[in-house]
Amino acid sequence: MTGIHRDEMLGLICGGVALALLSLLPLLTEGFYLSFGVNLVLYAALSTAWSLFSGPTRFVSLASAAFFGIGTYSVALWLDALPFVVLIAIAALASAALAALIGAATLRLSGVYFVIFTLGLTELIRQIVSWSQSRFAHKMGLYVFTDFTEGDLYWMLLALTAATFSVGWLINRSRLGFALRIIGDDETVARHVGIATARAKIVLFMISGAFAGIAGAIMAPRYAYIEPQAAFNPMISFMVVIMALLGGTRRLWGPLVGVVPFTVVMELIAARFPNESLIVVGIAFLAIVYVLPSGVTGRIECLRERLRRSLGTGVDAPGCGKIEGRA
């Protein structure tokens, strides 16, 4: 651990100011803009949590929706029995436990198995939940009635996003973060220098999953009536992947750059052309692969590098193409 650099200090102050400004939103407006704000902050938290794990390791996880649904159900099942704070802790623990299971089954092997496993995971859990509800509880949905206003949910999600950022920042500075960057660059090298690669990946995946689970728990009061079909919505996973990759995962704040425009676009599409939304998602994926392989932030950094080199002040940096190739 080193001391705090001046850059980091600046980032911290900017982040703090931004957080303070954003937290004013519920005081200024309600209705549409606030509910849009909730969506925005929700995806900000989910994408940042996603890129905590998938950014350095480059393992595409599609489990966000599963963690989210588990969080939602943790609240729905025990809302009458336990205080909300405890439920959030349960959501975090349950999601982390699921992440540990997925990790233990797949993260020892190559990345493809992991992608495939998480691809159907949400649907699997939905099937199991539906089946056990109809089998043992004889009803499909659960009611969640709380006193939380939309503003409360917004603040909680904002706090969660801030927490995700802080944890991400701490991980980056820790031995774990360093180990993961090496794993992402070359797993064989990582293993040879004595990093327990599987364990490092599993631990980080658990942290990332726990945050997604908490997000689900916070969102539960907003749905009021919770059924498997709505809580385990696979689209959430895909949206998170697109937003994070669109923004770029090489910086902690990269995903945010993708979250804002894509949430706006999807909101517009859902309002104007609801039938075409899947096509937009498809085009977004293709655009990421072919146009922005390292995301918007990666592209900006690369352009800045090129500019600096053309001015003759920079050291011999790798060309743009090389950086893009690393996405």
Binding site: F238, V241, E276, G282, F285, L286
Partner: peptide, 15 residues
């Protein structure tokens, strides 16, 4: 890359 690209195709065709 191919996973992400074929996700794109998946959603495009499905849409």
């Amino acid at each position: 890359d191919s996973i992400l690209a074929t996700f794109g195709l998946l959603f495009l065709f499905q849409g």
